[in-house]
Design a protein around this nucleic acid. Structure first.
Lengths: 318, 318
DNA sequence: TATATTTGTGTAACTGGTTACGTAATTTAT
DNA sequence: ATAAATTACGTAACCAGTTACACAAATATA
């Protein structure tokens, strides 16, 4: 199909569907050719029964990877043709035990030649290709089981969006954003405390002039995330990471992660030995972000914030 | 799927279907994720319209490889969502000219990011495989266009069946089969002539003792085909190939071809310079078989058979 | 110029699968 | 021992495609 060269691989599904259709179409004719009164769609069911054992509907469904109603329907059709029999399991009244009839088993022997012929034909085609369709499908099945296409697309999306985010140093014009973004989440989860007002209303005086830094994440030139690195007056810790806030509207762009990385880089460039932070365990995404950034829990420090119930630190390489 | 390792490639269709389904399922969710009010199945139609041109239903169907009713339905659905408009072609009243509306074009621009993300995700998967699914599909499409799976299976069938056929020299126990097989087709198409009775009733006297040969094709030890090589008393020709008959029940096993080849080999081993034959053009499969064996038409020889209206010869390498 | 054929389209019915739902039998938990 | 959860299965409705058919418009042919 010329068409698929234009669309590119986004039309993978469509292309697969068409190839599928072409092949199953021929399959039906092949059964007719060999004078076997069977439909291609019965094949998987027929195959698992061909060893002669009784099986339940759901067991068959699971084995061939169909839904159970699909198997149920197929069994109904095969029964009408006299290929299978059903009988209730005495031990378990829910189970419907299905097995091939004598006629079914007879068809099974007759069908063998057909199967070898089809196999030879398919192998002959495969031999003419440089790319192995069968193995490629196996690989795709495996990879999609590891991680769905959907979640891979989400990942690609995030990565691309993250590329549109730039982290810049604080400027006076971001003052209102710095306050607003923080107030948004603090008010939502807790209540504003005195220490909050102090640093949010006057960041220049209370953070920057004291040797701290503020970074701003811009998305389309719009400030959507902020984070501060506050100089600490403490023998154990050099800097505190605090006042991190990301707009809920800008979620899914890894902005928190990017800000965190930038803050760590900033601290490192300032020669810090470590970074300290305070948070609350009800902020689950935040805690997991801190973990991802490498912070580890520590205990036993005093804090001016009521909402703090967890403290973490990140030692930096010297 | 474990299952497919057991069935082997005969379940190629089933396996393709399942992979298709898994992928299109995710596709639907991806549209939802990007907040695009579109269905995956619309994509091919949407794509061909996205350049902005008006197109007819059938033109779209042809381009994307669907049936026209499929496109007709999709257009109906897209129209309901306000993505396309239809308008009758003034020049040709049958044509229904379809194009994207402003809303459709707007979605087209919005969708671009999604397409790149999907593409990145698919490319990322491809990069992890050692067998290229996309290219493999392309090869299969090409090869199936050259020759359908069905006809390839027929070929494999023939080849296998031909392997079960053995060509042996005449023995007295095949006398009745030699007559019966020939009588069957002669009576069907023409009527038995005096010369027929002579050679069919007494093959030993009239063919073998005069320096001729008879070969018999056995399928499961059953004689299903015969052919005679009759010594000619003629300055131009050494042998005549005649009395070739194959049971209709044993068709599709290339028995005629195998008999013909064996007869040619026999003549060659006898040092013949050429082989001559007589036939009738209403026996189309026979004539095409003779052509396949290398016989060429000749003209202007007398013949004792009323039914003969074509004569052929095959020069043999010296 | 009249008639036959081809072309463009829509509708209906089918196909091979699915999910949703209901029900009965069995198993688990309290 | 009873209630709750799980399991096996069938039925119904849906979905994304198909083929079959009908019909009108356009084109080719006699």
């Amino acid at each position: 199909m010329e068409f698929f060269n234009k669309t590119g691989k986004v039309a993978l599904g469509s292309r697969l569907r068409m190839l599928t259709e072409k092949i199953t179409e021929d399959a039906a004719q092949i059964y007719r050719l060999y004078n076997v009164d069977m439909q291609p769609k019965w094949f998987p069911v027929f195959y698992v029964l061909s060893v002669g054992e009784e099986k339940t509907i759901t067991a068959i469904a699971k084995e061939i990877g169909h839904s159970h109603p699909s198997v149920s329907k197929i069994i109904g059709e095969m029964k009408k043709k006299g290929l299978v029999t059903e009988k209730k399991d005495k031990a378990d009244g829910r189970r419907n035990m299905v097995s091939l009839t004598k006629k079914g088993l007879e068809i099974n022997t007759r069908i063998q030649d057909q199967l070898t012929d089809v196999n030879t034909a398919i192998e002959a085609i495969s031999a003419q290709t440089t790319h192995d369709l069968w193995k490629a499908m196996e690989e795709w099945e495996y990879l999609l089981e590891q991680q769905s296409l959907l979640s891979r697309v989400v990942e690609a999306h995030k990565k691309r969006e993250a590329g549109n985010v730039v982290i810049v140093d604080y400027q006076p014009k971001y003052k209102s954003a710095f306050k607003a973004l923080n107030e948004e989440w603090i008010a939502r989860w807790f209540k504003m405390e005195a220490a909050d007002h102090k640093s949010l209303d006057h960041p220049e005086e209370n953070i920057l002039k004291k040797g701290g830094h503020i970074l701003v994440a811009l998305y389309n030139d719009e400030p959507v995330g902020v984070c501060a690195l506050i100089k600490m007056d403490d023998p154990d810790y050099d800097y505190e990471m605090a006042k991190m806030a990301v707009s809920p509207k800008a979620q899914g762009k890894s902005i928190g992660f990017l800000l965190g990385q930038a803050i760590i880089a900033k601290a490192t460039s300032l020669g810090a030995r470590n970074i300290y932070l305070e948070s609350n365990t009800i902020l689950k995404p935040a805690i997991s972000l801190y973990n991802k950034l490498g912070f580890k829990k520590v205990t036993g420090r005093a804090t001016p914030y009521e909402r703090c119930n967890i403290q973490m630190e990140l030692p930096l390489p010297v």
